[in-house]
Amino acid sequence: MRLVSPPQLRLLGEFRLELGTDMVELCRNGQRLLAFMGLRGRVSRTVLAGTLWPEATEEHARGSLRTTLWKLPRGKPSLIGCWGDSLSISPTLCVDVHVLTRTALDVVEDSGPPSRTRPPLGLLTGEDLLPGWDEDWVLVERERLRQLRLHALDTLAEALIRQGRPALGMEAAWAGVRAEPLRESAHRAIVSAHLAEGNVGEAVRHYDAFRRLLNQELGVAPSPRFARMLPERLSERTRAPNRDLARRDCLRGWFR
């Protein structure tokens, strides 16, 4: 007996709906409807219609919702179930955002993967939610997922370094830096990985580079916690140029 894979809804990167081995093409409204339902799970018709068609009257929005639901692929079980005035996504539909969320929360709650298991770097460094979609409900969810990913990468990097796997920890930390270059926690993890390998010079160089970037972009210095990570003499050496830069920028401000 041939096993049929469950339907898949992919929202990370390009929108894709896969039913078995087939990729299903949907109209734009069908994509928006399934994407919203895939993120929310269950929602009332009023909220759904008002969110997807905010400029329309309630009557026209509900009409557009009915038309869009009618155009969705039909099968057993249905992708969308109706419960009175509420709609819910089928529990058999596998949504990649939910897999990412569960993985990231597991990392954050358990402080990283068990020792010697493969860390979930591929999933945590994947594509953003529906890039190019600019509706408010997408922007909110995209930022939520971005923050969750960043926290998971921070936790993963620190855990891997504690487990004696600094190279993998540095990979997780650099993924966080690529996503948010001014995120100090990710840079701290990189310095921690260098120090764990005994590479003090590289740790100092990275700290100096981040200090210059932070001063250039925001006009502030790294936190005292970051400075204390370095050996005391080196920490003092890196703080002195930072004071000079701050003083120079202050003087520039007077003459502008």
Score class of each variant (00 low, 15 high):
M170G: 13
G164H: 05
V204F: 08
A157E: 05
H194K: 10
G219P: 00
D154I: 09
R233C: 10
A157K: 02
L230S: 07
E217V: 14
P231K: 10
A159M: 09
T155H: 12
V220A: 09
R225C: 07
M229C: 09
R165G: 11
S192G: 01
S192A: 14
E217I: 02
V204W: 01
A193S: 13
A179H: 11
G176Y: 11
S235V: 06
R225M: 01
S235R: 09
F226S: 14
V191D: 01
L182N: 02
H151M: 01
I190R: 04
I161D: 13
Y207C: 04
R225N: 08
L214A: 04
G176P: 08
R178M: 05
R188K: 10
S235A: 15
V191N: 08
A173W: 03
R188S: 00
A173G: 08
V191W: 06
A203K: 09
A186Q: 02
L168M: 10
P224Q: 12
H194Y: 15
G164E: 04
Q163V: 07
V177D: 10
R165T: 12
G198Y: 10
P222R: 02
H187W: 12
V177A: 11
E171D: 10
Y207S: 12
N199R: 15
R165K: 12
A172M: 00
A227Q: 09
F226Q: 08
V220H: 03
R162H: 13
A157N: 00
V220F: 05
G169E: 06
H194A: 14
